[in-house]
Design a binder for these strands. Structure first.
Lengths: 200, 200
DNA sequence: CTACGGGCATGACACATGTCATGGATGCGG
DNA sequence: CCGCATCCATGACATGTGTCATGCCCGTAG
């Protein structure tokens, strides 16, 4: 019996997948979570065999959850997302996720992927994988990405600086480097571009 | 037997709902569509009893599809969406939709709603309806919304000014008024808030 | 008519932001 | 070891942005 944890902030898809998976004789859904923090807590309490994690969730996203879990548990994580971009795939694999499945795929593939990763294998959507082979990496450094992430919602330089424990000038410098590399004029344009490419 | 058409651009949720609905003895899924144009064509060909339409779809959104169908067919439409805001609900009802269901609700409610609208009733999610009763309209003036829209993607003041044929100072003034009314600190936060509320 | 209020436009000012030059830390290859 | 490159952090400076006071235009109430 494969014990599965489900996490997705969208109730409809979460409950739909749960209902479908419960029809499978060899799969047991042990938890349904609506956000990343809950997923981490439940996973640590229940130690499921496989965690199916939506990427877009409040507070902790799926990749962050996978990162946390991989540090402490033997659970295998599958990242599910609407925005299947090469950059996102890279982030997911770097976090130690064992599977990557875009939501454009049918629900019938979910059970198959779960079985595969539960058996110790990995699964990466072939289409996204092909894209990832021919893509260019983000030209941004880790720190630049941190700063960009921290300013994603229009936070002021001061807020970003405080949340990263940096001098405001340093934040401005990183931002400046980002703007130059991405050839845009404003912080917000940089955020939009980076989000579109799956870099943050 | 209730004949249902399903339209959602996200393959996973579309196929999951289809699979679940097929388990219901009195419901038959006659079509699954990935975009609005396809939904219109299939509905006209098959004349289903109920159309379950995602709001966010490429080219034609759910409300536009409902509008078209209500002009020519007796089909009853249910709008399904992630962003369940009063403004969206108003748009949906104005288009003649018979049902409104946010994706935050469980998949188990879908069949019940379909039966209800198939029987000639209407269904509006009670929580969104309550919001809609107590909602306030946008406190922003037309010009302020124009400026906000023009700056949606992080355009600089100069670019906004040029695209609206204004002095840069005027643009700043409008922005300033917006920030005050919305009680936020930056342009980007104002854009996010306005988008979230369906004002732009 | 006149006074008033609201929306729109503008320029001057204070402050936040982006740019630049600089220095320290680390890693790599000669 | 030394030079070289890269990343990170910082402060001074220029530019862009938000705030404010002001004036115009128009519709409406007195």
């Amino acid at each position: 019996m494969i014990r599965v944890l489900l996490a997705d902030d969208e109730g409809m898809i979460r409950s739909a997948l749960a209902a479908l998976l419960r029809l499978e004789p060899d799969i047991e859904v042990v938890a349904e979570c609506a956000d990343g923090a809950e997923a981490v807590a439940e996973a640590q309490r229940l130690t499921p065999d496989v965690c199916l994690l939506d990427l877009e969730m409040p507070h902790l996203d799926g990749v962050q959850v996978a990162e946390k879990l991989n540090r402490t548990l033997a659970t295998r994580c599958v990242i599910v997302t609407r925005h299947a971009r090469p950059g996102v795939l890279r982030r997911a694999l770097a976090s130690g996720a064992a599977g990557f499945l875009p939501k454009s795929r049918g629900a019938d593939e979910v059970a198959a992927v779960i079985r595969r990763v539960a058996a110790g294998g990995r699964y990466v959507d072939p289409e996204v994988a092909a894209d990832a082979l021919s893509d260019e990496r983000s030209p941004l450094t880790d720190r630049e990405l941190d700063v960009l992430r921290a300013g994603r919602r229009g936070e002021t330089t001061g807020q970003i600086a405080r949340s990263l424990s940096l001098a405001p000038g340093t934040v401005r410098n990183h931002i400046s480097a980002v703007l130059g590399k991405l050839a845009v004029d404003s912080r917000q344009q940089a955020v939009l571009l980076a989000e579109e490419r799956g870099w943050i």
